[in-house]
Design a protein around this nucleic acid. Sequence first.
DNA 1: AAATTTATGTCAGCCTTGTTGACATAAATT
DNA 2: AATTTATGTCAACAAGGCTGACATAAATTT
Lengths: 177, 177
Amino acid sequence: MTQHPERNEDPIKSALSGDDGIDFTIIELFFFAYRDFTSDPDQILGEYAFGRAHHRVLHFVNRRPGLTVAELLDVLKITKQSLARVLKQLIDTGHIVQVQGPRDRRQRELYPTAKGRGLALALAAPQSRRIAAALAEAAPGDRAAIERFLLGMVNPEQRTQIDDQTATGDDRRREAG
Amino acid sequence: MTQHPERNEDPIKSALSGDDGIDFTIIELFFFAYRDFTSDPDQILGEYAFGRAHHRVLHFVNRRPGLTVAELLDVLKITKQSLARVLKQLIDTGHIVQVQGPRDRRQRELYPTAKGRGLALALAAPQSRRIAAALAEAAPGDRAAIERFLLGMVNPEQRTQIDDQTATGDDRRREAG
DNA sequence: AAATTTATGTCAGCCTTGTTGACATAAATT
DNA sequence: AATTTATGTCAACAAGGCTGACATAAATTT
């Protein structure tokens, strides 16, 4: 036998592969796909001295106009101190405005301005183009499969939240309010 | 008409939706899916005082044992100074070893140790489970569609690099030496 | 009415992980 | 012998996370 018990410090020369019971193919594809997906808007953000954090805030404020600070924190899963920095910059540059909550005057409802709406669209455009290109090579019906898969990757507790946003595009917040 | 020309500072109350010609559904699903996907290993990494940067290095060293520092930098697209910090920690903790390149003695080939292999597997396991669960809800044939889509999202220049890794699992580096 | 809780803001400091620039060394190449 | 290449390292900086502490106004509870 060429094999002998390896010491802990010995280099392992064999590659980790799908044979190890782990789905490395999709793990790796997911990594590379997401990295290039986020690289598109990074170019544009650089011109504004903004980063990905600004992008995420701007995205969700445009997707759910009028959400409160607490709701935004819940979606982004960051602390209010982290949010404060980027949100302040977006407000100072006139991309987002705050409106005192009508029912609860402690709340601050967040809305995009025309400027903020424009930037959100500009940032999303190349991502949408990339998705369209990837889907163009796909078979009809692939889209449904991809949406199912991506939703299946999300923690179940969070899925309803997403369903609300992606199922249709209109503003249905608090209609029963 | 209720509508009047909006000033730049005015809040926009309508939500950005797919009607704007942008594929917000998949943009958002991709964001949430990736966030939860990366949250799995974060738990484990915390116990080692490691971060995602360590995970990425460990992953690729296990997937391509013997790659050089330059090759790893090319895959990760970070600077050598950024890599140096986390790589040093992984070496100091016995997860990765360096071997002087046999052909070019300036090069450092990177290999996982048994410890590093074990951690890489532990980190990948929950991600693989998440993927399996998402695929379990899918139709047969969905997997192929998903792989096509994810590969289609990657910059074309980088696809060959990925194909090499994911097509099969065995170590085929430099067989033509 | 008073006390408490809630939503938000803000100050201060810390950590990780990215960046650039400069310089050192050994090995390969010209 | 001179130059280029692969790697390492020092120093400084920035973005964007984090925790802890404290302030304020408004809502809620007692």
